[in-house]
């Protein structure tokens, strides 16, 4: 039984599907995430496919600050994803609220609402950094038992 589990975990990391949700970002991070999918950076060569349905996704890429209205949507999307799931927070706003942290409608970083596995800093991070973060997340997909609250920076 243990062997089968390990086998499935290894397979999972070979073709992870990702879901992208823009919380309250300025679009800077979103267009860099989209740029990752396009010919110059092309994450599809790693078997990564961008999906629109949370029920199909293994990875959740989020950018931007959480505000009072979208935190429900974010929590909802996270709960709809099947486990094991990896959350990658992208950009300074997703990490801590960034330049918007003092604004009145901002709750803070993504980790105020859902647990985050990989933090990718930058305003906005370059596509290389985002791919790096996703690959780091894939390592965690392969070994979900190591996840227990431990966090790494990309």
């Amino acid at each position: 039984m243990q062997g089968i589990k390990r086998f499935i975990n290894q397979l999972r990391a070979k073709s992870p599907w990702l879901l992208h949700f823009d919380c309250g970002s300025c679009n800077g991070c979103d267009i860099e995430i989209l740029a990752c999918l396009t010919p110059v950076y092309d994450v599809e060569r790693f078997g990564i496919i961008h999906v629109g349905n949370p029920f199909h996704a293994d990875l959740l890429l989020t950018s931007g600050t959480v505000n009072h209205r979208n935190k429900k949507v974010l929590a909802n999307l996270y709960s709809q994803m099947p486990s094991p799931k990896i959350v990658v927070a992208i950009g300074a706003c997703g990490l801590s609220g960034g330049i918007f942290r003092e604004a009145y409608n901002v709750v803070g970083g993504i980790d105020k609402v859902i647990p985050v596995d990989v933090y990718v800093p930058g305003c906005p991070p370059k596509p290389e950094a985002i791919i790096d973060g996703v690959v780091l997340g894939l390592g965690k997909l392969q070994a979900p038992q190591e996840r227990n609250g431990e966090r790494k920076e990309a």
Partner: peptide
């Protein structure tokens, strides 16, 4: 309202040079 942050109000705590960085975002 899903992306509303309240940037215009940040003018209260950032001076007029720092606001450039805010409006860029």
């Amino acid at each position: 309202g899903y992306v509303h942050r309240g940037l215009e109000r940040l003018a209260d705590i950032r001076d007029f040079h720092q606001m450039i960085q805010v409006v860029e975002r």
